[in-house]
């Protein structure tokens, strides 16, 4: 793995965030390279979600800089982050489960064809293009014309990932992507992450499951009470050391 000779996608320095009297993040640094999977680990309340929310434009950090593709950016809203190519996959927020795959992937950016000058939403083409993107990620949807509510949780999540990729996300952030899924579906999400990695997307994912982390990540960053207490290449650490960092620092 020779990621060091590429320029980082994300480069965060000295990030601090305070909620009232609570120091949620304290002088945290984070780097993410293209084609790299970075795992965020830490106990409950360690600041993992807060950290990714500063990257996805939900929270503004009190101090520190965020560089994206070499440039300092100031994200005011999640929209700005997404437009820039930083996409966050949430468990519940991304999908309108009364729409089909095409409707979801193209939500807000529907394809329109003209018939006698009148615009008509082109459902067939949206479905086709959505399925093509999903196929590239090895995601297969059996009845693509059905609303997503008939799909499993994992498949819905795949559609959300597919949507991000279709719109050229370069950084994909997943907060506990496998928490609500059964075992086969967890495995599927891990496979998708592998594929994303190959296509050069940078992935940050939060997980409590060390097996998942060790399976797909290249690097792990451990937070404790808002501080970065360790960072290791996965190839150079083990479960025990990570657990020690999480609880003891």
């Amino acid at each position: 793995m020779n990621i060091s000779n590429k320029d980082p996608l994300l480069d965060l320095e000295h990030i601090s965030k305070r909620f009232g009297g609570l120091q949620a993040l304290k002088d945290v640094a984070l780097t993410l390279y293209p084609g790299e999977v970075l795992a965020l680990a830490g106990d409950n309340g360690a600041g993992k979600s807060t950290l990714i929310k500063t990257i996805s434009g939900v929270h503004k950090p009190d101090t520190g800089t965020i560089k994206y593709c070499g440039q300092v950016i100031h994200l005011e809203t999640p929209h700005q982050a997404r437009d820039a190519g930083i996409e966050t996959i949430y468990q519940d927020l991304a999908i309108a489960d009364n729409l089909d795959v095409g409707g979801n992937v193209f939500l807000g950016r529907e394809i329109v064809k003209r018939i006698c000058g009148l615009p008509f939403v082109d459902r067939r083409r949206m479905r086709q293009e959505a399925l093509e993107t999903l196929q590239d990620l090895d995601i297969h949807i059996h009845h693509p014309e059905n609303p997503l509510r008939s799909l499993s949780g994992g498949q819905r999540q795949s559609v959300a990932i597919g949507r991000a990729i279709h719109w050229k996300a370069r950084v994909l952030i997943m907060d506990e992507p496998t928490a609500a899924l059964g075992v086969p579906e967890q495995r599927k999400v891990m496979e998708i992450i592998e594929r994303l990695k190959k296509s050069g997307v940078g992935v940050i994912f939060i997980s409590h499951n060390l097996n998942d982390i060790f399976q797909v990540s290249d690097r792990i960053l451990v937070l404790r009470r808002g501080e970065k207490v360790g960072e290791r290449l996965i190839s150079e650490t083990n479960h025990d050391e990570v657990v020690r960092m999480m609880v003891a620092g």
Partner: peptide
């Protein structure tokens, strides 16, 4: 129309609609 599609999305999951811009 796209408007109609958006109405369905708003009814299905208003957060998804907002996130989609």
């Amino acid at each position: 129309t796209r408007y109609g599609q958006h109405i369905y999305a708003i009814g299905g999951n208003v957060n998804a609609a907002l996130r989609a811009g």
